[in-house]
């Protein structure tokens, strides 16, 4: 297929996901403004970081006055999962120029990865298939930025006292539940959650790191498959 049809197909396949992502970006925008971020910083984070769950977490940490190195380390940990996507997409991008690789890495977020890898695996290698990923990435990027902008605008109009901070919790529930596919994943979530509650009083919000580590160890402990060959 040619470049343009592939680009448009990638964008089209991403549109249904935008119905969920744009409101998500809007809620982020509202929370960012409520946490005291300037309009430029709230929108800037969507452009520079372009990572939903990490942005939600950073807004919460910034509102709580967390030291910068703890906030950055937390964002690093929560986005480590993108290394999996990078490893999974890499075989399809190895012949591309550095510029293309750099561009595709920028849009390699959860939803774009999911749409793109499904399409790449279904079709045999096509010369211009990276245009499909670019189409998906740009569609999602546009939806996320517009959602953020709308949220920033609305954030100033929404009154206080609506427990809006709880949208972080329900959003994370929506992201967490689908990951609990097997016992190791469930144990990882339980161990991390319990550790986080127990360690809440620790300085510098270091309980989050400790909890993430506890969860990863619990998951590995529960799943010994990595010790067996194959």
């Amino acid at each position: 297929m040619q470049r343009k049809p592939l680009f448009l197909q990638g964008a089209r396949d991403t549109l249904p996901i935008l119905i969920g992502v744009a409101p998500f970006g809007m809620i982020y925008g509202v929370l960012a403004v409520k946490a005291g971020l300037s309009v430029a910083a709230a929108q800037g984070m969507s452009v520079i970081l372009f990572a939903g769950s990490a942005q939600f977490m950073l807004v919460q940490l910034l509102g709580a006055g967390t030291p910068w190195f703890v906030a950055v380390a937390s964002a690093f940990i929560i986005n480590l999962r993108h290394a999996l996507y990078s490893a999974s997409i890499a075989p399809y991008t190895q012949r591309l120029s550095p510029l293309w690789k750099g561009l595709l890495a920028y849009v390699l977020v959860d939803e774009v990865y999911a749409v793109t890898i499904t399409n790449f695996e279904r079709n045999a290698a096509r010369p211009a298939q990276h245009w499909y990923m670019l189409g998906s990435g740009l569609a999602l990027w546009t939806g996320w930025q517009l959602g953020t902008a709308l949220g920033i605008f609305l954030g100033a109009q929404i009154p206080e006292g609506l427990s809006l901070d709880f949208t972080l919790a329900v959003t994370f529930i929506a992201l967490l539940v689908p990951t609990l596919k097997d016992r190791p994943m469930l144990l990882a979530a339980l161990a991390a959650g319990i550790t986080a509650v127990a360690a809440n009083g620790l300085p510098y919000k270091s309980g989050l790191m400790l909890a993430a580590l506890a969860g990863i160890l619990a998951g590995l402990w529960s799943d010994r498959a990595w010790q067996k060959p194959g």
């Binding site: 769950s53 977490m57 919460q60 940990i77 929560i78 480590l80 999962r81 290394a83 999996l84 901070d165 709880f166 972080l168 919790a169 994370f172 529930i173 992201l175 967490l176 990951t179 609990l180 190791p184 994943m185 469930l186 990882a188 979530a189 339980l190 161990a191 991390a192 959650g193 319990i194 550790t195 986080a196 509650v197 809440n200 309980g207 989050l208 909890a211 993430a212 506890a214 969860g215 990863i216 619990a218 998951g219 590995l220």
Partner: peptide, 17 residues
């Protein structure tokens, strides 16, 4: 280990909330 990062981190932020 990377597989367990999403449930661990999401749950670690969620349960204290």
């Amino acid at each position: 280990a990377l597989r367990y990062v999403p449930p661990a981190v999401l749950s670690a932020i969620l349960l204290p909330e």
